[in-house]
């Protein structure tokens, strides 16, 4: 077989392996664990959708985005507007336009609509923001996040402002989340191996060299942002229908931090890194939360103090960053081959 065909087949084995691994984890958690473990697994898979969505833009372009929690917020509220009962909306959100106030869509098209709205906003905001380069673009995404948060926290009769929107149908379990996570991984891999994805990764390694080879950086960045924000918006819709309650502040700095942390800890340079980061940090968070609640050892009730979870996660992240600055996977992909790890797309070192 031709070498290139072989390489291409090998890179397409990555999403298959990642999906199978997530499927195995889900079967284990839902089949063997208690109800709480099943819920935790659903949350993990929603985070996979989010972080893989984030990776489609950040991993390929190398531009850090702080704005993705904002796109997530947009997707979550869109899905809520479409699925809440009209009587509820008349009461809680009197300012909605008529067609939204009357709408009562099934949950699946509502999630798609959430993703599409996020993608449209991604297209418009990206058209402006992505004209900037490097750190200025990152700051502009930060400003975007602050704008979304300010608007959603104050637009009383459309978003309910800081009093939460309640009563969302809670349909998201581990299987629904798994389906979306697998879809996100498949699209991420397709994009990363497409012509646009390769061109974008070339600009990540060297902006000037790529542009002088005829790569239109702006167009590829914008395309990847639109795909990325679609899945981010869907992840927002999923999170809303998983918790059942929406509040603009749950889509702000805390979420931004944890999503970026997962990406960086796993390794920003590879899709495998995005998934590994989510699984490792989610497992650590779940373990610590359970330790905070306490475990019974014989007669005694052992627990760690509240707040210890965040501190331990933060310290662990710093340690990982110091020991492995390019993440646990070091930017390598998990692919079928004699060796499990194939050296490719190593993160750029300054």
């Amino acid at each position: 077989m031709h070498h290139h065909t072989l390489m291409r087949l090998r890179s397409y084995s990555t999403p298959v392996l990642l999906s199978l691994a997530l499927l195995a984890l889900t079967v284990l958690a839902v089949g063997l664990g208690d109800k709480a473990l099943g819920r935790a697994m659903a949350e993990l898979l929603i985070r996979v959708t989010l972080v893989v969505g984030l990776w489609i833009f950040v991993g390929n372009s190398g531009v850090i985005s702080f704005g993705h929690a904002g796109y997530m917020c947009i997707g979550a509220y869109m899905s809520a507007w479409l699925t809440l009962k009209p009587t509820m909306k008349a009461l809680l959100l009197p300012g909605l336009p008529d067609w939204l106030a009357q709408a009562q869509w099934p949950v699946f098209p509502a999630a798609i609509a959430g993703g599409l709205l996020a993608a449209v906003v991604g297209l418009i905001s990206g058209a402006a923001i992505l004209r900037l380069s490097g750190i200025a673009a990152s700051i502009a995404t930060f400003a975007f996040l602050a704008i979304v948060n300010t608007v959603y926290s104050n637009w009383e009769d459309v978003t309910g402002a800081t009093s939460s929107v309640v009563g969302l149908p809670r349909y998201v379990d581990a299987w629904v989340a798994l389906a979306w996570a697998v879809a996100a991984i498949a699209v991420a891999s397709l994009y990363a191996n497409s012509g646009s994805g390769l061109a974008l990764r070339a600009t990540r390694e060297d902006e000037v060299a790529a542009q002088s080879s005829g790569v239109n950086m702006y167009r590829h960045r914008l395309l990847s942002l639109v795909i990325s924000t679609f899945f981010t918006g869907v992840a927002g819709a999923l999170l809303g229908h998983y918790i059942g309650v929406l509040n603009p502040d749950s889509f702000y700095l805390g979420l931004t931090f944890i999503a970026l942390a997962m990406l960086v800890v796993g390794g920003i340079g590879s899709l495998t890194g995005a998934v590994v980061g989510v699984v490792v940090l989610s497992a650590a968070i779940e373990a610590l939360v359970r330790m905070e609640q306490g475990i019974e050892v014989g007669q005694t009730h052992l627990s760690i103090p509240n707040g210890a979870q965040e501190i331990v996660i933060g310290v662990a992240m710093i340690v990982i960053l110091i020991l492995r600055p390019s993440g646990l996977t070091k930017g390598r992909e998990w692919a079928l081959s004699g060796r499990l790890f194939q050296k490719r797309g190593q993160a750029k070192r300054a």
Binding site: L260, G314, L321
Partner: peptide, 16 residues
């Protein structure tokens, strides 16, 4: 490390 890694580390420090 890259500026991104340092930025995330400072984010983590703030969190802690």
């Amino acid at each position: 490390a890259t500026p991104v890694t340092m930025m995330i580390a400072s984010f983590a420090l703030g969190f802690v």
